[in-house]
Structures are given as C-alpha cells and as structure tokens.
Design a protein around this nucleic acid. Structure first.
Lengths: 356, 356
DNA sequence: CCGTTCTGATAATACGTATGATCAGTGGTT
DNA sequence: AACCACTGATCATACGTATTATCAGAACGG
C-alpha cells in the first residue's frame, strides 16, 4: 500500500441535511425525519399540508439520508456484506463465484439490498482474513460468506458475536445458518446410474481439502456404493487426486476402473486428455463422471456426465435466508436455518454402459 | 421511500464500544480513540505504558471501530461505490463487466478499499436508475460508473453535485473524470494494417448506439481510411449492423468488401458463421476484424484479428484515479483527470492479404 | 369555568467516534 | 514567589438521524 494513503482527508462538501430541509420548509428537523420515514400515528401527527410542504422541499433538493447516521441511530441500512475468501472476479475463481454472485445480485435487486464487497480484507497466505483490526462487518446489516473452505474459527466467532450471517455451502460448525447443495443424494444417484449401466470398478478422485462440500460428495459416493454392494465398496479406491496429469492418469490405469468419479471437473478434464493421448476411448473404454460444472476455461472439454450444483439458486436463497434472519432476529434454533438444495443431474456424454 | 423501511429493526446486540474499553483500561474514551487511531504529537500525548495498557485491552476484546460512527465523525470510510447500469454478474453482461471488475477488485485490495455495489437501484426499462429517492451514493466516499452508455444527465448531476466519481470509458460530457480506452488510435492502426495487406474495399458495421466507445471506433476508422486514401473512404460503407444473421450477411456481400470491420465481436461471429454456410473462406476470401474481445459465450469462434481494450487495467486505473481525486479533492480542471489507455492489437487469424 | 382529550409540532437525547480546547500537575527559570 | 513550558489526560462538542417525551394551544364535555 502506498504511504500517501492514510493521508486521505474527506474534505466533505457540506451535506444536504435534514436541518437544512427543515429550515427551507419552516419546520423542525424532527418533523423532516418523521416525514422522510413516513411515520404516522399517535406519536407522530403531521397534517397533510405540512407533509406535502416538506415532501416538496425534499423532492426539489433530492435529499437522501446519510446511511452512516441512520446506521448509528440504529436503523438497518439494507446493506448486505459479501465476503469471499479469495478474490471474486478473476478468471481462476470466476466460475465458482460468478454464478453464486449472479444469484445474489439478482436477489439483492429484488429485495432492495445493496452489496458490500469486503475487498479490503488483508490477504494472508493467499486467503482473505475475515477478522482483521479494521474489518467493516458492522457496516452491513449482515453478511454472506462464500468460499470452498471457511474457517471454523471465523464461523464460531460470528455465531458467538450474534452477527447475522449466512454461509453459502453446508458447514459442519454448530449453529451456522447455511444454504448448501445436497451433494450426498446427488452422488448417490450418480453411483446408482453407473451401477445400473454395469459398472463395477469405480474410482473416486477428489481434491485434497477438508471442505464440507467435498466431504459430502465422498460421503454420497460411499453411501451409494454401499447401497449397491458393500463388498465392492471395500475394494474401491477413494483417493486424493494426484498433482500432475501423468500421475493422475496412472491412478486411473492402476485402479483398473471402468468409471472414474472426478470430484473436480479440472481433474476430469486432465484425465480426458490423457485418455486421448493414450488412445483410450472415452466413454466407450472409460467413463468419466464429474461432480460439479466444468470451468469455462477448459475449452474442448466433452459434455461431461455430471452433478450440477444450482449455484445461482444457492446465491439467491442465501440472501433470502439472510434477509429472513435480519427481519426475525438471530435464530436460536439454527436447524430451521439450514437449507440443502438438490443438485441437477446432467446426463452428458461421458457415462455409458460398461464393457462386458 | 418504501414503507418496509422502518419495519426492519436492527435488534442491535450492544456493541463493544470505546467507552467500555475505556472503563476496562481505566482511561477516558478520548484516550482510547487516540490510541486506536495511533495519534501522537503535541495534541495527543500518551506515554508508552498507557498506550500499551489500552492496546492490550483492545486486543483482548477484539475491538473494531464502528464504521458508521467513524463515517459520521468525518473519517473517510475507504468505501468505493460501484454502479453498473446493468446487472454485473449474469452471463450476458459478464464478459463486459467481469474483466473490469477484476481490475477494480484487485486494485481495491491493494489500496485497501471496500466496494459497494449499488444493486438496489430500481430498474427502469432494463437499466438501473442512478438517482432514485433512496440512492445510497453518499454512503461511499466516491463512485465508479460502469456501462456502455451512461446518461449524460447523470454525469452532469454528479459533476454539479461535487460528488467524487470516475466514469469507466471516455465520456463526451464536460468535466467528467474518466479512464477510457484509446479506440481511435487502435482502429487507425488496424486500418493501416489491412491497407498494407492490400485491402481496398472495407466495410464497417457497428452497433446502433450513441456510446462514446463506439463513436470513437467509428472515428478511428474514418481517420485511418482518410489517412490512407480519402477518395476510397468516400465509397466505404459505415453502417449499423443488421439485426438478423442473414441481413448481416447481405450487408457484407452487397458491399463487396474484402475486409469487414465488425465493431461488435458478436456480429463478427455471426458473419463468420454465415460465411461458412455460404462456402466463403475466412480469411482467404474474406477477412474479418473485430474491435473488442469476443464473448466467451460464443464458442468455436476463430481467433479473430482484433482490438483488445485493456479492460482489467481500465478497472484498476479507474479506481486509482478515483482514489487520487478523493485525496486531492474534486479537480477544477478535469482535463488532468481524463485518461486514455492504449488498446492491444491482437494479430489473430482472420486478417490476411487481400486477393489480387 | 375547569379538567380532559386531542392536535400539531418541537426539544432533547441517544447512537459511537474524532478532535480541538482545556485542565491539573510538575519541574524549571528568573 | 511568580511565571512559564511541558506532560498526561480529559471535557466538551460535532457529525446526521431517529425517537421519546414534552409543550402549547384548541376543542370538548360537564
């Protein structure tokens, strides 16, 4: 950060304030406030004439209340914070966040919320830090948390701090409101489907992470396999995907699998390319299934048979849930505030009957 | 103002305030503030012991200043508003905004700004309205304006209202600070290049819009052509692109052009497909040049020879410029605050020598 | 005519932070 | 002793809005 930075001085051009409106309309500041907020009833009696007069002045001068002052006075600001553990827009992370944000944005538009992106959070080890000395969480009415992995410590601190928030994606941490994708059931279905197509030799490759969304998919795989045949499950390799393309391929070959479940589409893509290189026909000799939508970065990918988490809907529903929480207060029993949305199953072209 | 406004009540869980810290550290609130803001000098004398003691309490309780209160007290909030005339994240507009926002976000991270996306602005005729009764422009220190077209009225109002802002993209309106792409010179170069390759029959198709960025490209085309040969320019059609694929194609055919300058990559894409359909070889029989980067939505596009506006850089530089304005105050002479960045010229594969 | 209720509007205050003005004390100088 | 310079810290106030309590006057009922 450049060092002239902190010298920022808001040479505030004097704001248009309620007091000035009051002077112009020949009333008191209180009256203006009451008119602005459309109050009426026993405690705020304003006859139509006066109201009109004030409204006219307000209109003419394009008055807008200072949100900071409102906030300080205890009024919600219709401001939702959005925290992403990684930069949200760059190409690498775009596929993941962009869809979610599309949903969030659309819903924000509908519900009348503005979005506060916490981009100033200092980056530590490639990840943004939620709780830093100058975090601005409180500026927002509540906050959405996005990220493959979310620090459990952060979640606990938010919960114990009574801060209204919603995590996007299922979370293991206690009392965390979230909206996630139902990966378990989705993967179970995919396993069933492959099984019915005659596959018996499976391989599951997944990313090396503790993320709940990945764990859920593994869980779904295990459940699906054990529903089909527990003894086969026992011989089925479930491994972290290798780093290099070649190693990945040898994982596939040495497993002897007829169908690979690649949790990460990027891995599916690499495997597919290696298959071509090694003259292995996909899907006739090897079926590939992936458990998320592929990145747009990988062109020339086949139309993978896959699980498609409803990312836009996840974003939209998260915001809706947060709005609910904001209105009805922090929930005691968060179980009511934990939502799982079904994944779509995309047929694609990379899963066909196993060869006999 | 909508009437749900007041119904949302922040059941504020009592904040951790400077006063409480003060009690715990046995000092006054003022002292805490001074420590928090790291003040020193003649007007704020705090001996190391006291400072340490206060810092320790601050640390232990994880105190964070209320941004609303700070803002009210006149401190800049390091908050930059981002206004897009269309939704920023959806696929249709993603190509345009996403690159810009990537740059903005990266720079915001560097300069320590948070971003406020004005998503609550009501949509009128498919476009968001900047000045609406509940606009929250003032919540931000300043604002970035994104959009192919920007209402001149909005710009004037911002200027006359002394509101710090920067438009992304060159603007005709007086006294508007902006960071834009130098389309004129870029297109001139492209014209020269085509000319040197022997092309004499040109066609320029552009979108039907008053947007400055489009006008600049047309201007560049005209300048380039007239530098080559004014008499040929006079015979060169410069038209609004037709709506349908077929009409577009007949525009191309009837012009007899050996090279088409398609301002909008989407048009280039359609023309390319029609060419294939009509067994016209691109680029050997028809060269195609486009004046922006193609959308990722159109797959199977060739590698168009094109002008590539530095969108990420545009975003980053806009934020930098706005930051400068915030520090040094609203400029009187905005000429110093109008920046044009050079476009990159991508060679691509769709412009080759004209047939003799 | 007096107490009561109702009406229209305002005064006063709270929200949490930043900062210029101020104050009490201390040590030094003439 | 009177004056000054300096230190450590606090007081008081401003920022703009929301809201409660209050007030002056009118209308009303007995």
């Amino acid at each position: 950060m450049p060092d002239w930075w902190w010298s920022v001085n808001m040479s505030t051009p004097r704001r248009l304030t309620q007091r000035k409106i009051a002077e112009l309309a020949n009333v008191s500041q209180s009256t203006v406030s009451l008119v602005v907020n459309n109050k009426e009833g026993s405690s705020a009696r304003i006859p139509p004439e006066t109201r009109e007069r004030v409204l006219k002045v307000l209109q003419e001068h394009g008055y807008v209340a200072d949100p900071a002052a409102r906030s300080l006075a205890g009024v919600a600001n219709k401001l939702i914070g959005v925290f992403t553990y990684e930069a949200a827009f760059p190409a690498e992370t775009r596929d993941f966040y962009s869809e979610l944000l599309t949903g969030v944005e659309a819903q924000a538009e509908i519900l009348g919320y503005d979005l506060l992106m916490f981009t100033s959070a200092p980056v530590q080890d490639g990840r943004r830090e939620l709780f830093h000395p100058t975090n601005r969480l409180r500026l927002a009415d509540g906050c959405l948390l996005l990220g493959l992995e979310i620090e459990s410590a952060d979640l606990e601190r938010l919960v114990s701090g009574d801060y209204p928030f919603v995590a996007v994606g299922r979370r293991d941490t206690q009392n965390v409101p979230y909206v996630g994708a139902n990966y378990v059931d989705g993967v179970v279905q995919l396993v069933e489907k492959a099984w019915k197509l005659g596959h018996r030799k499976f391989l599951l490759l997944h990313r090396d992470t503790e993320a709940e969304s990945v764990a859920d998919r593994i869980r779904g795989f295990v459940r699906g396999m054990s529903e089909m045949d527990p003894s086969i499950l026992r011989q089925t390799p479930i491994s972290v995907a290798a780093r290099t393309s070649q190693d990945l391929w040898s994982q596939v070959v040495s497993s002897g699998a007829s169908v690979v479940f690649a949790e990460d589409p990027a891995h599916a893509s690499l495997i597919y390319r290696e298959a071509i290189k090694n003259s292995v026909d996909v899907p006739r000799e090897l079926s590939i299934v992936t458990l998320a939508d592929p990145s747009t970065l990988f062109e020339n990918d086949p139309d993978f048979t896959r699980l498609s988490p409803p990312r836009q809907k996840l974003g939209a529903e998260s915001l809706t849930l947060l709005a609910k929480i904001l209105i009805s207060g922090i929930p005691k029993n968060t179980a009511d505030y934990q939502l799982l949305l079904p994944c779509e199953l995309v047929s694609g072209k990379t899963l066909v009957a196993a060869r006999v």
